[in-house]
Design a protein around this nucleic acid. Structure first.
Length: 426
RNA sequence: GGAGAGAUGGCCGAGUGGACGAAGGCGCACGCCUGGAGAGCGUGUGGGCGGCUUAGCUCCGUCCCGUGGGUUCGAAUCCCACUCUCUCCGCCA
């Protein structure tokens, strides 16, 4: 959520941001908010004056009664005022609710350094690492490799659950587990993150706190009987660790890393990535989340991205870093780098991590603040998060990058200790 | 799932329908005291919204005692619903 003061003072900046983002655009909402906001304040001034009168009268009544005198007249007068207050309070509540509703749908303001453009075609490649592997044969996509090795079983995954669920067997299951440990170890032991294992179901407030509700409920699995939702990413529970809290400035930055399964209905992606394990309803992910001081959030985005990149470097997988354009930027994000890994079999780059700075957008929704060390009022922290990395896609990338002409797959050296010394999948 | 208890300021803890947001204590901050520290003494110690002024960090108002409603001229205090925590029983990885 944006600061109402920003919308008041700089409505044109907000409108421009909405236009730059393209698709969610409805600039008239800003005017609607401004109107409701001034209505709200006008009523507030009036009703607070009435409340003041009520408080004064209350003291008078108490004093009169103490003296044993009759306060009937004042009471009678106050009865009317109270009635009026009740009406106006309800009005304020209603106006406020409508204002908040509109505000919840306004996306974050992109950073100035974010390229302006309508969609992913305007994204900017920031850097690349490594080179695409060369083959003396036609490299195959991971689903062919996986089925041939009998480690990816799509048919049975579908039988057990539905399409876009995959049964991992043998070396694939082992690699999945190994990658989780491998990544967690890097981030906890070398990058200074604290490991957490959060609830995999979260309530509605938690989803609202990170900006996934009310807008994107269609993509979630709801347990309606219990009013809980399967998390779409660890960002949801981990960011909400500090919902409603005031941290000490000295506690910043707070850095967490979590492995969790993630669940997405992938509504509206029919026909996209239908083969393989790129787009699944259930997938594993290691996620980094940071709570930082507002002054350093963009630096923290760079280091967060570097932390994610480190995993790919250790695994020796070719990738590039892309700065998303305004049109491709997530709703809550002010700046975002995607790490795209080279899928040797498919011959294209695929997103494997998304590292975002949300400035105070999530913190305002989730009410996460810090107390400045120099004193003064609490301020909103800035939040960031990034995958480090999506596990399934990493498996796919390894299978495709490290395949041999006979169908076997070389286990990356760095991962071998995590797979019981296995060097080759055959 | 059944039965019961409870939710007050950073923490502990009192609280009557009407007294700067609330006794007391702890903690914390500043000051005094001290050669220094401690003790002691003194002062202070939350947040949201809004107004004025256009920035007072020591202005004014309003709201906040789990959350949301209700009763009342007035509610932390009475009523209702919900949420959470704790104890016991049952079931269970």
């Amino acid at each position: 959520m944006l600061d109402i003061k920003l919308i008041r003072d700089e409505p044109d900046i907000v409108k421009q941001a909405i236009l730059d983002r393209g698709k969610d655009a409805d600039v008239t909402d800003v005017d609607g908010i401004l109107e409701l906001d001034s209505r709200r304040r006008a009523i507030l001034v009036e009703v607070e004056e009435l409340k003041r009168q009520r408080n004064v009268a209350g003291e008078e009544i108490a004093a009169l009664k103490k003296k044993g005198e009759d306060a009937g007249q004042i009471v009678e007068r106050m009865r009317e005022i109270s009635e009026r207050i009740k009406e106006m309070d309800a009005e304020v509540r209603e106006v406020e609710a409508r204002r908040t509703e509109l505000m919840m749908d306004i996306p974050n303001i992109p950073q100035e350094s974010v390229p302006v453009g309508p969609d992913e075609s305007a994204n900017e490649e920031v850097r690349t690492w490594g080179k695409p592997p060369r083959f003396t044969f036609e490299p195959r996509p991971h689903w062919e490799i996986g089925e041939a090795l009998d480690i990816l079983d799509f048919k049975r995954g579908a039988k057990i659950a539905s399409a876009r669920f995959t049964l991992l067997k043998g070396a694939a299951a082992l690699m999945e587990r190994a990658l989780i440990n491998f990544m967690l170890d890097i981030h906890t032991k070398e990058h200074g993150y604290t490991e957490v294992f959060p609830p995999i179901l979260a309530n509605q407030e938690s989803f609202e706190g990170v900006g996934q509700l009310p807008k994107f409920g269609d993509d979630m699995y709801w347990c309606r009987d219990d009013n809980l939702i399967l998390i779409t990413t660890a960002e949801v529970p981990v960011t909400n660790i500090h919902r409603g809290e005031v941290l000490a400035e000295e506690e910043l930055p707070r850095k967490y890393v979590a492995y969790t399964p993630c669940f997405r209905r992938e509504a509206g992606t029919y026909g996209k990535d239908v083969r393989g394990i790129i787009r699944q309803h259930q997938f594993n992910k290691v996620e980094m989340v940071k709570f930082v001081h507002p002054d350093v959030s963009l630096d923290e985005l760079e280091s967060l991205t570097a932390n994610a990149e480190e995993v790919l470097k250790r695994l020796g997988i070719h990738y590039r870093v892309v700065c998303l354009s305004t049109g491709d930027l997530g709703f809550a994000s002010s700046k975002c780098y995607d790490l795209e890994v080279w899928m040797a079999g498919a011959g294209e780059f695929k997103e494997i991590s998304s590292c975002s700075c949300f400035t105070d957008f999530q913190a305002r929704r989730a009410n996460i603040r810090f107390k400045p060390a120099s004193g003064g009022k609490p301020r909103f922290v800035h939040t960031l998060n990034g995958s480090g990395l999506a596990i399934g896609r990493t498996v796919a990338a390894i299978l495709e990058s490290n395949q041999l002409d006979d169908g076997r797959v070389v286990v990356p050296t760095a991962l071998q200790p995590y797979m019981g010394g296995m060097t080759l999948i055959e």
